[in-house]
C-alpha cells in the first residue's frame, strides 16, 4: 500500500468497485486519511454509494456524483473530485468506470497525476468474465483503457471470482492467469483480492492477498 493515489480500472464488471472499496477500508485500518472517488460515468446501477454505510463506519470519505443510484441518468462527476490531486495530505482511492468508456473520465486528471508521480493504476482482472477469459482479450481491454484514460497501467490485480459461488479453485486459476498476463505485459502482479471468507484458505495459494468486503446491493441477495 505505497502510493498516495490508487486508481482502479478494468473491464466492465471486473469487480473494480468491490476492490476499490476494500482497498480504501484497508488504508483506513492503517489509520491513513483516505477518500474514495467514484468516477463511474458509464453505469447508474451498483455503485460505490451502495457501500456508503460501510465506508462511513471506517471514516472513509466518499466523493460521488449526487446522481449515482438515482433516477438521473447522466454521466456526471462531483466537482470535489479535484481533491484527488489537490489535497496531497489524503490518500485517494479512485473507482474508475468500466472499459475504455469509463477510463475517459480519468483523462482530465492525467497531467496532475503525472506531475506528482505518486500513483498506481491498477488493472482489475477477473478471468471469469467472458471478455477477459483469455490473455489476448485481457490485453485488448488493457490497451483500450490505457488509450482512453491517457495513463499507463502500472500493476495487475487478480480478482478472479464467480460472485457467491467463488471457491479456491477460481482464485488459483485466476492467479495463474494473471501471472501469465504479467509475463506478457511486463506489469507486476500487485495482489490477489478474495472475499473475506476465503482469505484463510487462499493463504495456501499465495500470501499476497487483500480481503474483499461484500457490498450488499439489494434485498434479493442472500
Amino acid at each position: 500500500m505505497g502510493k498516495r493515489v490508487n486508481l482502479f480500472m478494468g473491464h466492465y464488471g471486473s469487480g473494480k468497485t468491490h476492490v476499490a472499496v476494500s482497498y480504501a477500508l484497508e488504508l483506513s485500518k492503517e489509520k491513513k486519511p483516505v477518500s474514495i472517488y467514484d468516477l463511474d460515468i458509464v453505469n447508474p446501477y451498483f455503485r460505490t454509494v451502495d457501500a456508503k454505510s460501510m465506508l462511513d463506519r471506517h471514516g472513509v470519505e466518499l466523493i460521488v456524483s449526487p446522481y449515482a443510484e438515482t433516477n438521473v441518468d447522466i454521466p456526471a462527476m462531483n466537482a470535489a473530485s479535484y481533491k484527488m490531486t489537490d489535497d496531497k495530505k489524503r490518500f485517494a482511492v479512485v473507482d474508475v468506470g468500466g472499459d475504455d468508456r469509463g477510463a475517459l473520465a480519468l483523462g482530465r486528471f492525467r497531467d496532475r497525476l503525472k506531475e506528482e508521480n505518486n500513483y498506481d493504476a491498477f488493472l482489475v482482472v477477473n478471468c471469469f468474465r467472458p471478455e477477459t477469459r483469455d490473455i489476448s482479450g485481457a490485453i485488448e481491454i488493457l490497451k483500450e483503457i490505457e488509450t482512453a484514460g491517457k495513463l499507463p497501467i502500472t500493476a495487475i490485480i487478480n480478482n478472479a471470482n464467480l460472485g457467491k459461488e467463488t471457491t479456491l479453485f477460481e482464485v488459483e486459476k485466476g492467479l495463474k492467469f494473471c501471472e501469465e498476463l504479467s509475463k506478457e505485459t511486463n506489469l507486476p502482479l500487485a495482489f490477489t483480492s478474495v472475499f473475506e471468507g476465503l482469505i484463510e484458505g487462499a493463504k495456501t495459494i499465495t500470501d499476497n492477498l487483500m480481503p474483499v468486503s461484500e457490498i450488499l446491493y439489494g434485498s434479493w441477495q442472500k
Binding site: G13, F128, R129, P130, L162
Partner: peptide, 12 residues
C-alpha cells in the same frame, strides 16, 4: 461458468 450481467447473458 462465467460471471455475467443479465443483459450480457441475454445477448450471448
Amino acid at each position: 461458468k462465467v460471471l455475467m450481467k443479465g443483459n450480457e447473458a441475454l445477448a450471448e
